[in-house]
């Protein structure tokens, strides 16, 4: 079997004309984007508001015609093969509903099953599976407009997955959800991928989504790929490190020159000091051993790099041509 990517975009570009008073301006929402997603992958597509995420998604799914460049999704040309592609892709836009607002939730699944030509048996098996795993049983007969946001988002995701698409695209799926609802949705998606090998492309501002769900991240900025690789690699690129926070027994001069660390700061006259773990293979144990010869350590904690901070730092530092490797 040839390894055809699920998504392959080359030089994908989309301009918008924006009117500002009497003047017209061209905005390059997506500018020469290259993107490849392989079958079975889970990719986090991240970036600031207006970076070009949604515009990309719209071109991948055939809603929006590219200004230039090419894209193949599931081996199909999205705009031309819209209907064939729709059978192979499931999309959730967190801010919009694809359910029948006035009808009981169950009706939406029935209609979508007909739209996707599921057989009677297939429809029942798949609906049962989704209802059970997404815990929708309690409100199947409730009109969609009466569902809570958490219930509705689970229903939206189930609706997008009803036809067992090869590729699932989720645009801000956890927006506005409470911690528990987010966790439930993530657990479901992990299970769904394990059971069916579904490819996942996720745009989100929620780094928890990326950490829990994605093998790989693609960071987009000004319509081009700013970074592609693992989340850890992203942190390294942005020069973000784990930080060891030490509470010492008595005020101590700054702990400079500890191997594999840089001193990030001291508080309370040196009672609390922060050391960034910079070297490859630097361990907390080795640092602790080095420090204990100079001061008595009462307590310690390790702060992981905050990914949103990482993204912000990368944005600030990046104003040269985009690197593509970690």
């Amino acid at each position: 079997m040839t390894e055809q990517p699920i998504v392959e975009a080359r030089g994908l570009t989309r301009d918008f004309r924006v009117r500002e008073g009497l003047r017209r301006r061209v905005v390059h929402a997506v500018a020469g984007l290259d993107l490849r997603v392989d079958a079975g992958e889970a990719v986090g597509y991240i970036g600031a508001n207006g970076a070009g995420k949604s515009t990309t998604i719209k071109m991948l799914t055939g809603i929006l015609v590219p200004t230039s460049g090419s894209v193949l999704t599931c081996g199909l040309e999205p705009v031309r093969d819209r209907r064939r592609l729709a059978r192979q892709v499931g999309v959730v836009f967190g801010q919009r509903s694809q359910l029948w607002w006035d009808l009981p939730l169950r009706e939406s699944f029935r209609i979508l099953a007909a739209i996707h030509h599921l057989g009677r048996e297939q429809e029942r098996a798949r609906t049962d599976e989704l209802v059970e795993r997404m815990e929708l049983g309690g409100f199947l007969t409730t009109p969609v407009r009466q569902l809570s946001l958490g219930q509705r988002m689970r229903a939206e995701v189930a609706a997008a997955l009803l036809h067992s698409p090869d590729l699932v695209i989720l645009d801000e799926p956890t927006i506005g959800l409470d911690v528990l609802s987010k966790q439930r949705l993530r657990e479901f998606l992990v299970e769904e991928r394990r059971a069916h090998g579904t490819t996942l492309l996720l745009t989100t501002h929620d780094m928890g989504d990326v950490e829990r769900l994605c093998d790989r991240v693609v960071l987009v900025d000004h319509g081009t790929v700013a970074y592609e690789g693992t989340l850890g690699g992203l942190a390294r690129r942005a020069d973000a490190h784990r930080v060891l926070v030490l509470d010492l027994a008595e005020p101590t001069p700054d702990l400079l020159g500890v191997p594999g660390t840089t001193h990030e700061g001291s508080e309370a006259g040196g009672l609390r000091q922060r050391l960034a773990l910079v070297g490859e293979g630097t361990t907390v144990a080795s640092v602790l051993a080095a420090v204990s010869s100079r001061a008595e350590v009462l307590d310690l904690s390790v702060a992981e790099p905050d990914v949103e901070d990482v993204v912000r730092r990368l944005y600030a530092s990046r104003r040269e041509p985009p690197p593509t490797d970690e």
Binding site: I63, F93, R96
Partner: peptide
């Protein structure tokens, strides 16, 4: 409001 995008995401006319 742009929700028509969802109509185009279904395999129907």
């Amino acid at each position: 409001d742009g929700s028509v995008a969802l109509d185009f995401l279904r395999p129907v006319d």
